Amino acid sequence: MPDITPDVVSHLANLSRIALTDDEITRLTGELEQIVESVAKVSAVATPDVPATSHPIPLGTVTREDVVGVTLTTEEALSGAPASEAGQFKVASILGEEQ
Rank of each mutant, 00 (worst) to 15 (best):
E65H: 10
G80P: 02
A81Y: 12
S54Q: 10
G30V: 08
V67K: 15
I4P: 03
V50S: 06
V9E: 05
P82W: 09
A46E: 04
T71L: 11
P2F: 04
S10I: 02
S38I: 03
V39A: 09
S10Q: 03
A92F: 14
L32N: 02
P82K: 14
T53V: 15
V62Q: 09
A83Q: 09
V9K: 06
E75Y: 08
E65F: 03
D23Q: 11
D23M: 10
L15K: 04
I25N: 01
T71Q: 11
I57L: 12
V67P: 06
D66M: 05
K90P: 06
E75N: 09
A44W: 00
G80W: 00
R27M: 06
D22Y: 02
R17D: 10
I35V: 15
T21Q: 06
L28C: 02
T63Q: 10
E97F: 12
A13G: 08
T71V: 13
F89G: 02
T47K: 15
I57C: 02
R27A: 14
I4K: 00
D3K: 04
G87F: 12
S10T: 14
D66K: 11
F89D: 06
T53Y: 05
V8I: 12
E31H: 06
A13M: 03
A92K: 15
E65Y: 05
V45C: 06
T5Y: 00
A44D: 11
T5R: 00
G30Y: 01
A77T: 06
L12S: 07
G69P: 00
T71F: 13
H11D: 13
K41I: 00
M1Q: 07
V39H: 04
D49P: 04
L72P: 00
S38W: 00
S10W: 02
V91P: 00
T21K: 08
V42G: 08
H55D: 13
E97V: 15
A86F: 12
Q88G: 02
D66W: 07
T29A: 04
I18P: 01
R27C: 02
A92P: 01
V67C: 00
T63V: 13
L32S: 03
V36T: 01
G96E: 10
E76M: 07
V45Q: 08
L20F: 01
V45K: 12
P2K: 03
T74R: 15
L28M: 13
D23F: 01
T53D: 04
V62H: 07
P58L: 03
E33L: 04
V70S: 11
V67S: 10
I18Y: 02
P56S: 10
P48F: 07
S79Q: 11
T73V: 03
Q88R: 15
H55A: 07
E24A: 14
L12Y: 00
S54V: 12
A81S: 14
G60R: 11
F89N: 08
E75W: 07
A81C: 09
A19I: 01
G80S: 13
L59E: 13
K90N: 05
V9A: 05
S93M: 12
